[in-house]
Each structure stands twice: as structure tokens, then as C-alpha cells.
């Protein structure tokens, strides 16, 4: 069924097609084709003739490789939960507008625009053994020796938080401030306390936004690459699946195996997205059932 709004031409005529074709062609040739070609290549290992699952079997048979899946989840899941909860807390508290909104949002956009690499270089300096952060703590007498915050798991988490928190916060703030305040006001008028308003009224309304935030942050953290190299231990504790794929492609030049790892990475990201969608459905159902009982 085609929905048409009144007064709008709905036909896809020659001019419309001509307008769409260039960009569509670009996406098909440069995005869809490489993707499909990558899947095809992953099934054609270099050492075996014809189609074979050898690459996938090698990956899941080699502890050095399949461990990266666990390592990546171990970074992505805690990071997603922390980023989204903190951002939600702040955005919810500031849904009525913030003091100095423009300045605050401008400063928050900084890490997004500066990019991962500059942030990593800054974190190495600032949180390093001789950086200001450790100097301050040592100077205040809170510590006897500097904390090791870079070139380990904590460094990667710090960098991911710095990158993704502003993004997530601004997205949730945009979403939550779009909810009609009169709904909340009616609930307050009818005697609901702040906690009830949050849990019974606002949470179901915010659920789609929260689910989107969870999905985006999770997917971004799962592909973590430069910060895991610069701020972590790329040969050990933070060797994520993206590093494994990169090493196969550009250090071993085994494009077939590398494509297989990229496919595995994509599948796990999709699985994460599906779980988030399912959780969201349960959350909304639970919330509405609770309301229904009254």
C-alpha cells in the first residue's frame, strides 16, 4: 500500500528517477557491492579451492582470535551501559532547558569534532604518569604513586566515554525535550511523585530514544579500533575484533580471512542490535502492563 499525502505528486517519473539514480548507484557500487563481495570472499579461503567455511572455523578454533570477541564485548557492553545511563540521568535532569545551553552544547560537541586521535593523544598526556591528573592527586596527598590510567583497559574506556558521552547526551536531550511537558505536569497534578513520574510516565515515552541511544553507542563501541591501539594494549588485553581484522588484512595480507572477521564483527553487532530491540519491547510491555493493572 502506498501512502500519499494530498496535493503531492506521487509518481516516480523520469525526472525523479534521474535525480535518485546517481546517489543510489554510488551507494550500491561503493557500499552494497563491497559488502557482498566481502561475504563472498570470506567464503573463498586462499588455501582451499572453491567455497568453504575454513576461515570461520579457523577463527573460532584459534583462541588468540576468538578471544577478541569476548574482549570486544567486555569493552562495548560496560561502556554502553555507563554512557547511556549517565547521559540519560543528565538529559532527564536538564529536560526543561539548561543554563548556558549554547555554551555547554558547544563545548560538548568539541570531542566529536576533534576526533579520536587528538583525544587519545590528549588523554595519554593528561592522564599519563606525569600528566596533570596524577600531579593533582599526588599534590593533594591522595596518592603515593601515580595511577596507571593509560595503555590499559581503563585508558580505552576513558577514551570511549569521552567520545560517546557528548553524542549520546545531546541525542537524548533532543529526544527528551521533545516530549510534551503537559503529560508530566498532568501526572504531577494527579499526585504522582518524581519517581513515579519517571518510572511510569516518562520512561515508556523515552524508551524508543533510549533504545536508539543504546543501539548506536553499542555499535560504535563494538567497532573500537584507534583508541584500543593508542590507549590500550593492542597485543593483549584490548586486542579487539577490529584490530584482529585489520591485522589479517594489512599485516598478513589475507583479505579472505580479514573479510571473514569483518563479517563476524558485523554479525555480532547485528546480534547486539536485535537484543536491544527485544529488550525495549519487553520494557515497554512491562511498563504498559503495569499501567493497565491500575
Amino acid at each position: 500500500m502506498r501512502r500519499t499525502r494530498a496535493g503531492e505528486p506521487s509518481e516516480l517519473d523520469l525526472m525523479a528517477t534521474a535525480c535518485l539514480v546517481p546517489s543510489l548507484l554510488y551507494v550500491l557500487v561503493m557500499f552494497v557491492y563491497p559488502f557482498l563481495y566481502g561475504i563472498y570472499m570470506s567464503l573463498r579461503p586462499a588455501k582451499v579451492a572453491g567455497f568453504s567455511l575454513a576461515n570461520y572455523l579457523t577463527f573460532f578454533g584459534d583462541e588468540w582470535q576468538y578471544r577478541t570477541v569476548w574482549i570486544t564485548f567486555n569493552i562495548a557492553v560496560p561502556n554502553t551501559v555507563v554512557v547511556v545511563s549517565v547521559a540519560l540521568l543528565l538529559a532527564y535532569g536538564m529536560r526543561r532547558g539548561i543554563w548556558l545551553e549554547r555554551t555547554v552544547t558547544t563545548i560538548l560537541v568539541l570531542p566529536i569534532s576533534l576526533g579520536v586521535i587528538l583525544l587519545a593523544e590528549g588523554i595519554i598526556g593528561f592522564y599519563g604518569a606525569r600528566g596533570w591528573f596524577n600531579q593533582l592527586l599526588l599534590g593533594l596527598g591522595l596518592l603515593n604513586e601515580p595511577l596507571v590510567l593509560t595503555h590499559n583497559y581503563i585508558g580505552v574506556m576513558l577514551s570511549l566515554f569521552m567520545q560517546q558521552f557528548p553524542f549520546c547526551f545531546l541525542m537524548l536531550l533532543g529526544y527528551i525535550s521533545g516530549i510534551d511537558p503537559s503529560i508530566e505536569n498532568s501526572a504531577r497534578t494527579l499526585g504522582a511523585g518524581p519517581w513515579t513520574v519517571f518510572y511510569k510516565v516518562m520512561l515508556p515515552l523515552m524508551a524508543p530514544g533510549i533504545a536508539i541511544a543504546f543501539a548506536l553507542v553499542f555499535v560504535m563501541s563494538f567497532g573500537v579500533f584507534p583508541s584500543a591501539i593508542l590507549l590500550g594494549q593492542p597485543a593483549g588485553a584490548t586486542r579487539t575484533i577490529a584490530i584482529a581484522a585489520y591485522q589479517q588484512a594489512f599485516e598478513s595480507y589475507d583479505m579472505s580471512y580479514a573479510s571473514a572477521i569483518a563479517v563476524i564483527m558485523g554479525v555480532f553487532q547485528m546480534a547486539g542490535l536485535v537484543i536491544i530491540v527485544l529488550l525495549r519491547r519487553r520494557m515497554v510491555m512491562a511498563a504498559t502492563m503495569g499501567v493497565g493493572k491500575r
Binding site: F31, M220, F222, G223, F225, A242, S259, A262, Q269
Partner: peptide
């Protein structure tokens, strides 16, 4: 994420 489709 760009790492996923960047390699193919």
C-alpha cells in the same frame, strides 16, 4: 561502524 565495511 566504518571498520566493519571499511575492510571489504
Amino acid at each position: 561502524p566504518q571498520m566493519t565495511y571499511g575492510i571489504p
